Amino acid sequence: MRYVMVQIPKTPASSSPAPRSVPTSADVARLAGVSRATVSYVLNNTSAVRISEPTRRRVHDAAKELGYVPHAAARSLRAGQSRLVVMPAPAFPVGPLYSRFMTELQWALGRLDYTVVQFGTVGLHGDEAVRAWAELRPVAVLVAGAQLDPQGVAVLKRAGARAVVTLGPEAVEGAHALLMDHTAVGRRAGRHLHDVGRRRIGVVVPAEAGLEAFSQPRLRGVRDALDGTGATVTELPLAYEEGAAARLAARWPDLGLDGLFAYNDEYAMLLMRALQDRGVRVPHDTAVIGADDLMLGRLLRPRLSTVHLELPSGRDLAELVDRAVRTPGLPTERHTVLGAEVVHRESS
């Protein structure tokens, strides 16, 4: 047996560039011809120290040329306080209305010099999720839905969070609460259908996990609105799928419903299309109303009636967070923030 030795030539060291060092504020100061303190004042937008406009431009130009960005964690250590706001991703499917609100809120917090981090919660629940948020040492945590309890609030505050704010149907002890009364949405929809002469009302309840905190209060609101009127309410579980909508539409003659509150505009558009495909006339046979007042609902024919929701201002919520951060002993506040008004269009 023979062995053949093959020599593999070494790659010259010069062919692999050495990793570039991370630029520091000292590098920016040298290039701009200023002190490190001046760099800090300029890049942190410190208003207490007056810096001339030419100097500011030199510092910004030097930072851009070097690719320097401030170290958020180091800045927090120097200041003795984090400027990090954690916003856990909701554990429920979000629609366009909620997405617009969150975008406005992040913009408003950024204007107040906070760094906003959206934290993915896939696979994390309860105490495990709270500990993961606390590890980031945020100065504030904004939690949507029923993802937090009083023990979780205490954990976050012990980790340094000065403001814990919940956005949902119920308040949590120890946290500021923006209360969203979804029963009012159902009451408005149910009363509207009754006012236009409908007496056999179906209410869509989404099958998707995480929406129960919204769908059940809306169903309860419809029942409250129709209590004592002689009208009936039928709960209609529905997944947000074309096949599920088609199967429900096929049962429509047996259900005998003449009015439909479809949870929101997206489910309303899904089911209304399936009903029309089965020959159900809207609104002649069945009046339909959704919620959220999405633009797409106005483009349908017939145009979709809806419950217009007035979410809190992102700017107002950002100011609440800032107030709580600056005033650690601030008593917890509770605000009911969800306005609901019917917009009557052709579908009902």
Score class of each variant (00 low, 15 high):
residue 8 I to K: 12
residue 31 L to G: 03
residue 31 L to N: 04
residue 6 V to I: 15
residue 39 V to H: 02
residue 38 T to P: 00
residue 28 V to Q: 08
residue 30 R to Y: 01
residue 14 S to A: 13
residue 24 T to Q: 07
residue 37 A to H: 08
residue 19 P to M: 10
residue 7 Q to A: 14
residue 7 Q to G: 10
residue 29 A to I: 03
residue 32 A to T: 07
residue 7 Q to H: 13
residue 42 V to P: 00
residue 11 T to L: 13
residue 34 V to Q: 07
residue 14 S to L: 05
residue 7 Q to P: 01
residue 29 A to K: 04
residue 33 G to L: 05
residue 12 P to G: 14
residue 6 V to P: 03
residue 15 S to N: 10
residue 42 V to C: 05
residue 19 P to F: 06
residue 9 P to F: 06
residue 12 P to D: 15
residue 15 S to P: 00
residue 13 A to N: 09
residue 26 A to V: 13
residue 20 R to I: 10
residue 18 A to W: 01
residue 40 S to C: 04
residue 23 P to K: 07
residue 9 P to V: 15
residue 21 S to Q: 09
residue 8 I to M: 11
residue 39 V to N: 04
residue 19 P to H: 10
residue 41 Y to N: 08
residue 14 S to V: 09
residue 37 A to F: 02
residue 12 P to L: 11
residue 14 S to T: 11
residue 11 T to Y: 02
residue 23 P to I: 10
residue 8 I to N: 12
residue 39 V to E: 05
residue 15 S to F: 02
residue 30 R to S: 11
residue 38 T to D: 04
residue 18 A to D: 09
residue 11 T to V: 14
residue 10 K to V: 15
residue 24 T to E: 08
residue 37 A to G: 11
residue 13 A to V: 10
residue 13 A to R: 15
residue 15 S to W: 09
residue 22 V to C: 10
residue 26 A to F: 02
residue 15 S to T: 15
residue 23 P to S: 14
residue 16 S to A: 12
residue 27 D to M: 03
residue 12 P to W: 02
residue 11 T to I: 13
residue 12 P to F: 03
residue 35 S to F: 00
residue 18 A to H: 08
residue 9 P to Q: 12
residue 10 K to Q: 13
residue 41 Y to P: 01
residue 27 D to N: 08
residue 7 Q to M: 12
residue 38 T to M: 07
residue 17 P to W: 01
residue 27 D to F: 01
residue 12 P to M: 08
residue 43 L to N: 05
residue 30 R to L: 06
residue 6 V to Q: 14
residue 33 G to Q: 08
residue 37 A to W: 00
residue 31 L to R: 11
residue 19 P to V: 11
residue 23 P to N: 11
residue 34 V to K: 06
residue 36 R to M: 12
residue 9 P to H: 12
residue 34 V to T: 10
residue 18 A to Y: 01
residue 32 A to Y: 01
residue 11 T to H: 05
residue 32 A to C: 06
residue 13 A to G: 08
residue 21 S to H: 11
residue 21 S to G: 14
residue 18 A to P: 01
residue 40 S to V: 01
residue 16 S to Q: 10
residue 26 A to W: 04
residue 6 V to A: 14
residue 6 V to T: 15
residue 38 T to H: 01
residue 29 A to C: 07
residue 10 K to P: 14
residue 30 R to V: 10
residue 40 S to A: 14
residue 39 V to C: 04
residue 21 S to K: 08
residue 6 V to H: 14
residue 17 P to S: 09
residue 42 V to D: 04
residue 38 T to G: 03
residue 34 V to P: 01
residue 20 R to K: 13
residue 39 V to I: 09
residue 35 S to P: 00
residue 17 P to G: 09
residue 38 T to V: 13
residue 40 S to Y: 00
residue 29 A to R: 02
residue 43 L to E: 05
residue 21 S to R: 11
residue 27 D to W: 00
residue 39 V to D: 06
residue 16 S to L: 13
residue 16 S to N: 07
residue 24 T to P: 01
residue 12 P to H: 13
residue 22 V to P: 00
residue 41 Y to W: 09
residue 32 A to D: 03
residue 23 P to T: 14
residue 40 S to D: 09
residue 33 G to H: 06
residue 10 K to I: 13
residue 12 P to S: 14
residue 27 D to G: 04
residue 22 V to W: 09
residue 43 L to S: 04
residue 6 V to R: 14
residue 16 S to W: 02
residue 17 P to C: 05
residue 23 P to M: 08
residue 9 P to C: 07
residue 10 K to H: 10
residue 38 T to L: 04
residue 33 G to V: 06
residue 43 L to P: 01
residue 36 R to K: 11
